[in-house]
Design a protein around this nucleic acid. Structure first.
Lengths: 243, 243
DNA sequence: CGTAGGTTTGACTGATCTCAAGTTTGGTGG
DNA sequence: CCACCAAACTTGAGATCAGTCAAACCTACG
């Protein structure tokens, strides 16, 4: 499966996984105005406080959502990859409470929130699929609160890696045991509530314990089952099989 | 405003705040089967892993949602009060990824998820209101990730108190500057990723600095503006004015 | 009053941060 | 193709915030 398309295919595949679409639903999606775009790593799609009028379906590359404290420290609250729809909440909440940034070069399809909202209003199954997607989003945030609040540094990082691997697999982006990290160790630190220095040490320790093997940004999870246990990772919160 | 009613009134008021209901919408809500129930502090409404088939509208008292690590430590991911609908995500996700527990004696109206889902499917404005509610939920989780990930102990606790105060006010439960905490210091610890011992010390310090005054569980925020700054609290993430 | 749960305090420990100095990597222009 | 540069990564040493353990003290409630 590859997402190297105009966005319509990716969007349809995504929503098919979340609800049982019919022909009218697919037609409605086909008629959505989708603009294919490309931004470089580091660029922002949206900044906290702005009014958002656009939804983004990621086609390739990686992005993150983050918030900052008044003193400037950054907390990444989620990572996103091909197949993810980011900014869905701006169908119903106009003001952004977080920023969205590309962490690698990124291609995405942009659609006006108003258009997607109209489609959702007239196609209950699409609304259901989108709603379910935002609910899964929320479930992931809950797990992150647990991760940052109650796991130690090594576990947090291991858990983040497991989630990344599992979501890549669900999205059809490759095997979960071997992948290239798109984010810096500083990004990992900002996602786990740690410092880049400590992330570096913990990654080294995970490698020393034989849980992962590293080469540059390439990561291989050497023993998925031990890793899963070390990370306290249980994929249930990803609600991957919908329902 | 008081929520000492059968649940219908509370539910209607809640949704009116989230979207513009019409007469049919209100009628549909009126016909929802609502069972008024009461549980004691400490009781569970739902446990992680269970299939949930019920949504709860809280009428009085307080509840929390929490998750646990495999080793048993607990992370509270949200607090809830009169007017909140908890477990809305079980309209679309059957398996609970967290537990729901009463932290004080609690009265609530229970409605079968399937019934509420049916109403949402046939009344787009109700669906929109409920969806928006879950999106605000998600926004609060994001703030909690930031709180636990990037603020120090004193700020975390101060922020939690500010949120509690602000939400009480929005829900019409009284002035934000003076209230009784329903939760123990251990609960606060589990919500902020700290230990009960450290929570105790930080509360003492907040009091020593004149930000709050305490008497048992009674808390008065002595200087809201200083408190807000100390807590790095900005209510925008609560999306209280809907839109 | 007796008891259990909750709160407070003290002394010590330790995980993670901070600061600082290298080292490696990947991209860019000559 | 190489030299250079900035960004990312790595390592070390010392500081600190928050945790642990343990004991005492409240206080609500039976």
């Amino acid at each position: 499966m590859h997402f190297n398309d105009d966005g319509f295919g990716a969007m349809t595949r995504k929503l098919e996984r979340l609800a049982k679409l019919n022909e009218q639903d697919r037609d409605a999606l086909k008629n959505l105005p989708l603009a294919r775009k490309r931004v470089a790593a580091g660029q922002h799609l949206l900044r906290e406080g702005e009014e958002s009028t656009t939804c983004y379906m990621l086609l390739s590359g990686y992005a993150c959502r983050y918030k900052t404290t008044r003193t400037g420290s950054r907390q990444i609250v989620s990572f996103h990859m091909a197949g993810d729809i980011v900014d869905l909440q701006h169908l119903l909440l106009s003001r952004a409470d977080h920023s969205i940034q590309a962490i690698s070069d990124l291609t995405f399809a942009a659609t006006p929130a108003a258009e997607l909202k109209k489609v959702a209003q007239t196609h209950p199954t699409i609304a259901e699929a989108l709603w379910r997607d935002t609910l899964i989003d929320a479930s992931v945030f809950r797990e992150w609160v647990l991760n940052v609040g109650r796991r130690d540094a090594k576990q947090r990082i291991a858990h983040m890696l497991c989630e990344f691997a599992a979501r890549r697999e669900t999205a059809g982006l490759g095997r979960p045991t071997s992948f290239e990290l798109p984010m810096t160790q500083e990004d990992i630190a900002d996602a786990t509530g740690l410092t880049n220095v400590h992330v570096n040490r913990m990654l080294a320790q995970l490698a020393a314990e034989g849980l992962i093997a590293r080469d540059k940004r390439q990561v291989e999870i050497a023993d998925w089952d031990r890793m899963r246990r070390a990370a306290d990772f249980d994929a249930a919160y990803l609600h991957a099989q919908a329902a």
